[in-house]
Amino acid sequence: MSETRRQIIDNIRASLGRGPLPDGVVTQLRARISEPEQGIRPRFDQDLAERFGEKLQSVAGTLTRVATLNDVPSAIQQYLDQHQLSKNIVMSTHAVLDGIEWPEDWEIEQRPARGEDTISVTGAYAGVAETGTVAILSGTESPSTLNFLPDDHIVVIRMDQIVSHFEDLWWLLQKQDLDMPRTVNLITGPSRTADVEQTIQLGAHGPRRFHVVLVEQRE
């Protein structure tokens, strides 16, 4: 233990007027971590997908709802056409994208993003209806650079992946016994800045546009 560390801990204890915590208290504190307290959740009546879509669109994200995974390519094609984008796409190997047949004229590369990439398509771990947020966990099948370097970030997510509140997201992670990955990205709309005269401008350093294809089909 470093001397400085010991001094800081000692100072904290001295200021709080006590020594090291008794074992009983430590046990209680550990229990508070393993059985975390529930926060007060903002209430809403809408169904999860509806709320998720509404909140996402309120922060300049866009959304297409499709019936099945087979409809995903045409939904993305429409998006590419609408914004006059190329068909050079860098993609994650996320399970939700497995088995989708992409149009033959798309140039798809499955890898982390590079500086010059313009469009990425990824999956997500979950959506959070509370705020229209998408949660993406880093991992072999989901490099974090795909979420930040391209101008357009398109996320494909199934409706049954949408949870109600952030507490549900953490509960899901815990239930599936997933350790925290290196990075958890909670993404709520495209990149933005208000640093020049408090005027909101999209596309500061990350994606200029953020699009979600919401698939009704269940797993």
């Binding site: 922060v59 880093s138 072999t140 490099p143 290196r182 990075t183 909670l186 709520t188 990149s191």
Partner: peptide, 21 residues
């Protein structure tokens, strides 16, 4: 804002099979 655009949780360095980080 109800949520800022990016809320990011960073836990340790990249894992053995991660491609970036």
């Amino acid at each position: 804002q109800e949520m800022s655009s990016y809320t990011t949780f960073s836990t340790g360095p990249k894992r053995a099979n991660d491609h970036d980080g």
